[in-house]
Nucleic acid binder design. Structure first.
Lengths: 339, 339
DNA sequence: TTGTAAGCGTTATCAC
DNA sequence: GTGATAACGCTTACAA
């Protein structure tokens, strides 16, 4: 493999000049630049990135921590990150944490060892204090995460408000016994969504009763189990808002199994707008997050940090959207109740 | 940040010894090892990986080329790769090709510039000749790919045989007008699956007519469109084998829309066993590939290449499985026709 | 067993 | 505008 000194020799210049041609082409006279480029071409020279990274102590690589790469929600965000990164000459290193806290801890080593220039964490499990501490030392950005005290840049939607919308939609369809299957309560997102559910209920003079609330884990199985449970009570909900589409689909299948028809007997609203939400039968009414855009925005923020630019705004709340399909029964109604 | 020389100074040894403690602990006496480890601890020393990589001209990083990270088929394979890689001290760099040939080409640069030690390509689009040429220079492994002349290690299932099984299953349920929605024909996998369909038909004395075959693109939309088309003919199929679950689901929804009931009026078999296959209504009969295992095996093979071990076997065909659920109507039948 | 010292290929700091 | 040269931090012959 030819090295820079080979190019220099062939072009009759010094390595310094070759380096300049590569990195600051304007600081060198056109004629010598010509010669150098010619030599580079002739030798088919490729700069040794390892040497460059070493010398410059930067890698042009960022790390993305993903709770579960097979979850379409995360993989779409990664897609957005990847695109923005590629456009800016950065590569994306991926790490599956499998929802394990220890894997998040372990990933910090990559930053410490300067193996990556920065990190984007999707739905981090680490406590806020630790995150802030990391953030003091390394460039990090959070996505689908929300902080009580936003000192670290993060990208998210307004989970409280979106949950209010989802719940309100069900209430305006005339439902009063609206149940909620939440995500795990250790996650702030889940707590926010739960809060939104409660707000909407109270705002409409309804009492969010404990017997209509279940703590799930965002998974199909947890939605399925909790729905079976909810429907086995004496008083049964007529509508349910699940904090993820996976859970919503689980809930619908559980209802079906008990002969409860969706949306006729049970109205369902989910969250995430996964690819299958529109393919499922009945198609899912759900909250759509701008996943690709969230990935992009996260990378934009990280780029700013990497370039030493000041980030005036750390809280980046993108607009979500309630997508009305069949599972809520809205299409059978003539009109909604007033707000 | 403390460097190796700091550790050496504190421990009262040379950097060479520190290096040895880190990489060949057995070649140094326990007592000095003790001292060095003590110093490392005290300084909270982390080796500078950039320097190490540079010096050793290796990165402990591999590149995975993914046609589409949001596709659960690929993300599950990536999961398997990731796991095996992590266990062996390798990191996984991810690159989305978006099914673009030029992105596959561009990724070779990473290898040339020694930014990664090796590469796993999922469903590569590059022609066999080019792949072989790359393989002569760099360690690569293919997954969900099949070569005519297997000179590069690859991991796959037997797509011809699995398609035969899928088609045969429908035939044994009594269907004679069995249609096929294939993947894009530029892909060998699609051609193999088509071949399997044809084999099964012919083996049972049926004629695989052109009017019952459509070339899709593995996507939901293409399955949907082609099904509408198939059902608009005078003679209509009673069963369909789609080369992907996404297409199968599209086909089912198209049928539903036309009032054709699945499985009563139309039996459907898909391919991939995506997560959603079991959640869909009707649940999908489909071919399951051992995705996680395929990822793992690919990484195992790449590790062998990276370690300079000989790979005696390049063709790694893992077992697939026909998973019988509701969409094919088998559960309504008393028994299948004989083979 | 341990230390010395010469690189690895690039970039940055000086002079010129 | 260009060149000489000293790093960057680690690894590894080779010597002791």
């Amino acid at each position: 493999m030819p090295k820079m000194s080979d190019v220099a020799k062939l072009a009759g210049v010094s390595t310094a000049t070759v380096s300049r041609v590569l990195r600051n082409p304007d600081t060198v006279t056109p004629s010598t630049k010509e010669k150098v480029l010619e030599a580079i071409n002739q030798l088919n020279y490729q700069p040794n990135m390892l040497a460059r990274h070493f010398r410059r102590t930067e890698t042009n690589t960022i790390l993305v921590l993903v709770p579960n790469i097979s979850n379409t929600v995360f993989s779409e965000i990664v897609g957005g990150i990847e695109e923005e990164a590629a456009q800016n000459g950065y590569r994306v290193l991926l790490r599956n944490t499998n929802n394990q806290l220890e894997n998040e801890y372990a990933s910090i080593e990559h930053l410490k060892q300067r193996q990556v220039d920065g990190m984007i964490m999707l739905s981090p499990k680490l406590d806020e204090e630790t995150l802030i501490e990391i953030s003091h030392q390394y460039p990090i950005v959070l996505a689908t995460a929300h902080l009580e005290t936003p000192t670290i840049p993060f990208v998210s939607i307004d989970n409280v408000r979106s949950s209010e919308k989802a719940t309100e939609h069900l209430i305006r369809l005339g439902h009063r016994r609206v149940a909620h299957i939440s995500g795990p309560m250790y996650s702030l997102i889940s707590r926010n969504r739960y809060e939104g559910y409660q707000n909407a209920m109270k705002n409409h003079g309804l009492n969010p009763e404990d017997k209509f609330v279940r703590e799930g884990e965002f998974t199909y199985e947890s939605g399925y189990e909790h729905m079976l449970d909810l429907l086995s009570q004496k008083e049964v909900p007529t509508a349910i808002y699940a904090a993820s589409d996976d859970m919503a689909i689980g809930a619908i299948n559980a209802a079906n199994e008990l002969g409860v028809k969706v949306p006729e007997d049970l109205a369902v609203v989910g969250f995430d707008n996964i690819k299958f939400a529109s393919m499922f039968n009945p198609s899912l009414t759900t909250i759509a997050q701008p996943l690709h855009g969230m990935g992009q925005r996260s990378m934009e923020l990280l780029l700013k940090k990497l370039n030493g630019e000041a980030i005036s705004q750390t809280e980046h709340v993108l607009p979500d959207k309630l997508i009305i399909r069949d599972s809520c029964g809205a299409k059978h109604k003539e009109k909604l109740l007033p707000m």
